Simulated assay, not measured.
Amino acid sequence: MRPRTGPAGAPAAAALLAATLLAAGCGIQSTDVIAVGGPATAHVEGSEGGSTVLYFTGPDGLMPVVRSGRGVGPALPLLFAGPGKAEAAAGVRTELPPLRGPASMSVAEGMVTVVLGQEVGGLSLLAQRQIACTVLRATARGGRVQVTIIGTDARSSISPIACPD
């Protein structure tokens, strides 16, 4: 056996020194949370160019989702079909039940009317806003527009409505 050279506690002292430096954080002080405003927003282009904007729900309420390669016509069936797999994985949800009947919309001066072949009396305000914002974007109506949703059991009017970009 060879005799030891150097102090016996050197590895333990080095480990203690390293732990002390890590615990000290190299002099970085903690700070409080600094409020800088609301969440980031993005402007979503209209439904021109073969894309459709659908309004679903997210952590902060309504949110627009752009579906490319589809015309304006199928906006309501697409909306009622709900978010796709990738959208759902990203936290996009819907308040709407599946579409169980025909869906149509008509546009007149200052009014968009949506007629659904199913009950609408139980739709939440958020679900009604999903429909209203989707049809407003699909019809490219600006200004003060009233949206009326008619179902087999009830009628609901939303006017005016602000939709997120």
Rank of each mutant, 00 (worst) to 15 (best):
M1K: 12
V120K: 06
A24C: 10
R2S: 01
G69A: 06
P164D: 03
S106H: 08
D60W: 12
G69R: 04
V66N: 00
T139D: 08
A18Y: 13
G91T: 08
S30F: 06
P160R: 07
P77V: 00
C163N: 10
V107S: 12
L76R: 03
T94Y: 14
F56M: 03
M1L: 13
T5K: 04
G27K: 05
T113V: 15
L79R: 08
A14D: 08
Y55R: 09
P11I: 08
A108L: 09
V92L: 07
G121P: 00
Y55A: 03
A19N: 06
A90D: 04
G121S: 09
P3W: 03
P11Q: 07
D60V: 10
M63P: 00
G25R: 03
C26R: 11
L21T: 13
R4G: 01
S30T: 12
D32H: 14
G101I: 08
A90F: 01
L76T: 02
R155I: 04
L17I: 13
I161N: 08
S159D: 10
R67F: 00
E87A: 11
L99H: 06
A88P: 08
G38S: 12
A24Q: 14
G58Y: 09
S157I: 07
E45A: 15
S104M: 10
T41V: 11
I34L: 12
P3A: 02
V72A: 05
V33S: 12
Q146W: 10
L21V: 13
E87S: 09
T41N: 05
